[in-house]
Write a protein that binds this DNA or RNA. Structure first.
Length: 559
RNA sequence: CGCGGGAUAGAGCAGUCUGGUAGCUCGCAAGGCUCAUAACCUUGAGGUCAGUGGUUCAAAUCCACUUCCCGCAACCA
């Protein structure tokens, strides 16, 4: 079979702070399921992610913790890396945008853009905080809103009346970092990416894309409103320095994080593969054969659908650009947003202490916010975990294995007999596995999960209809044959469940002393576990979440 | 009239592109079964498809207007 080459990237989470469930639901988990699935069906996969580490929040965060920015970002990079490992995210490499490779790649792409006439230097005026000794991004200037009088309006927008503001409009402006009102406007030079000149190129490229509604809607909105030239540098110390050999006036300036962050996909690949990165990223070195999938939250779509492709198109037509872009909506917590500053919601480090990764993986994929924002609550979480994982799947596995083990032994002593009912099951299962695969391939995770669940239900239906406990009374051998068939169903269920619930699947497959990548031919695979094969009856694979536990969790996290 | 997404049984969703008896899961009710985690299987009740108007033999689906929810609005990332 011809192997496809699949490049997968997840939007790089910003390194500042602990990720929450929304970050997992919105891009990391779906991309991991897709990566695992593709590996299982035999495709060659490169799955890349990392932390986005530049920008003023890191400088400010480091100051607050009284450490260097390098120490600060390293600390949080490791926290991210550790958490994602616990959630079983199977990155081929988890890098960071502060790497030497990213600095080089970003600088070289900027040079290419400049040589092609897509970068221009312009002079702006921006607020400088004398006491903080830095230029302030608009949102770090706070003051009284001239429209509604709210006293905590930010320089970019008043959260009270939602009016869009300019920092100049604010009454009594001050720095939100130090509280100092010792501010002044200073002239500063910046590089602009001439998106207006790239607009036609981007549009004709977007027109060849086959994206979902949410993504295309956002892309065309930007194009239709007209792309505006965008500043790609900042007056900060922490970031990719602007190369002075090409831009000699740009001393002490760095690229804006949103310019260098997506370039991180390329540089992280370089970090992993060295020169072999070319076969994934350069069209004339093999990347034209690659199918590239990007996953991100909807807030990130403009950058992936417009800005980053524009950057690559302007720099060099030879760069690989995204084929399929999956934009997801947000996960909310009990009807409101997750909030780092307010400590609202459950964060990934705590979540994994409360429940095994598979519980979260299952629920978050089943409820992936694909069309609209999705609301998380411990009530919904426990209902679906209890019903689907415990009652439908876990209970099926145990009822079959315990039954066989108690009436016969833990060594299979029956042939797999294919009667009419079994034929039906095989053909239906073949169809359903095909549907399930198709849904994952088209990145329709909710539908994929509904299909997977209905596959699990087939096990219970089969056992119930065949009623081996009744047959056992008159035909012991026949009862054993039914159960042996069911044991093979368990094997198949767990193989195809691996992308979603890898730990549990492996646990059961190990107990069955079996393994397998993917089920392409049910008729063949249904008799892989046969006479002489031994198995162990595993401990409960899942445990239920009691209503008391739900109350406790609400008490703990729903303040 | 800034832009985009969403509104479908008590809850969560599919169906809308390509008009043709409104579907799935949970919950609820009744029945079955007793191998299993008080689980599992079957059947049933429950919907003026956000509203109004239009096109059509026929509208959840197409068109127009309205209401409500979410996000974005380019110097937060």
């Amino acid at each position: 079979m011809q192997k496809d080459r699949i490049l997968i990237t997840s939007a790089l989470p910003y390194v500042n702070g602990i990720p929450h469930l929304g970050h997992l639901a919105g891009c990391l988990l779906p991309s991991d399921v897709f990566a695992r699935f593709n590996r299982l069906i035999g495709n060659q996969v490169l799955y890349i992610a990392g932390t986005d580490e530049h920008g003023s929040p890191c400088e400010i965060g480091a100051k607050k913790e009284n450490v260097s920015v390098e120490e600060y970002t390293s600390k949080y990079h490791n926290i991210h890396k550790d958490i994602y490992q616990k959630f079983n995210l199977s990155f081929d490499y988890f890098g960071r945008t502060s790497s030497k490779e990213n600095i080089e790649t970003t600088q070289s792409i900027a040079k290419e853009l400049f040589n092609n006439g897509f970068i221009e230097q312009r002079e702006d005026e921006q607020i400088f905080s004398i006491d903080d000794n830095m230029f302030l991004p608009d949102r770090y200037v706070i003051g009284t809103c001239p429209f509604c009088g709210a006293d905590n309006a930010r320089g970019d927008q008043c959260e009270n009346c939602t009016k869009v503001l300019d920092p100049r409009d604010l009454i009594n402006p001050k720095s939100s970092i130090s509280g100092s009102s010792n501010l002044e406007f200073r002239k500063t030079k910046h590089l602009y990416l001439l998106l207006s000149k790239l607009s036609d190129k981007v549009r004709s490229w977007v027109e060849t894309r086959n994206w979902n509604k949410l993504t295309l809607g956002i892309a065309y909105k930007w194009l239709d409103e007209g792309l505006k030239d965008r500043s790609i540098t900042r007056d900060l110390k922490w970031g990719v320095p602007v190369p002075l050999d090409v831009f000699p006036d740009m001393k002490d300036k760095v690229f804006y994080v949103w310019f260098d962050a997506p370039i991180g996909y390329i540089s992280i690949t370089k970090e992993l593969l060295g020169d072999d990165y070319q076969s994934w990223w350069l069209m004339d070195k093999g990347a034209s054969e690659v199918q590239y999938f990007q996953f991100m939250g909807k807030d990130n779509v403009p950058f992936h659908a417009i800005t980053f492709p524009a950057t690559l198109l302007g720099a060099n037509e030879n760069y690989k650009k995204v084929d399929t872009l999956k934009g997801l909506s947000y996960l909310n917590f009990n009807g409101g947003k997750f909030s780092k500053s307010a400590g609202r919601g459950i964060f990934a480090d705590k979540a994994i202490e409360e429940f095994d990764a598979d519980y979260w993986r299952y629920w978050l994929i089943k409820n992936a916010p694909e069309t609209d924002d999705t609301d998380f609550s411990f009530e919904r979480f426990s209902e679906e975990i209890n019903k689907d994982l415990n009652d439908v799947l876990g209970n099926f596995i145990l009822r079959v294995l315990k039954f066989y083990n108690s009436k016969f032994s833990n060594v299979i002593s029956h042939d797999i007999i294919i009667g009419d009912k079994e034929k039906q099951i095989i053909s239906l299962l073949q169809q359903k596995i095909h549907n399930y695969s198709s849904f994952i391939k088209s990145l329709e995770f909710r539908k994929a999960m509904a299909e997977l669940r209905s596959i699990w239900v087939m096990g219970n239906e089969y056992i119930d209809e065949m009623a081996p406990w009744a047959i056992y009374k008159t035909d012991v051998n026949k009862a054993g044959q039914i159960l042996a068939f069911a044991i093979n169903l368990i094997r198949i269920f767990m193989i195809i469940s691996q992308p979603i619930i890898p730990d549990s699947s492996l646990k059961v497959l190990n107990a069955l002393n079996t393994s397998g990548d993917w089920v392409f031919d049910v008729e063949h695979d249904i008799s892989i576990i046969n006479k002489g094969h031994s198995f162990n009856v595993p401990e409960a694979i899942f445990t239920k979440i009691s209503s008391d536990r739900v109350s406790e969790l609400n008490e703990k996290y729903n303040k």
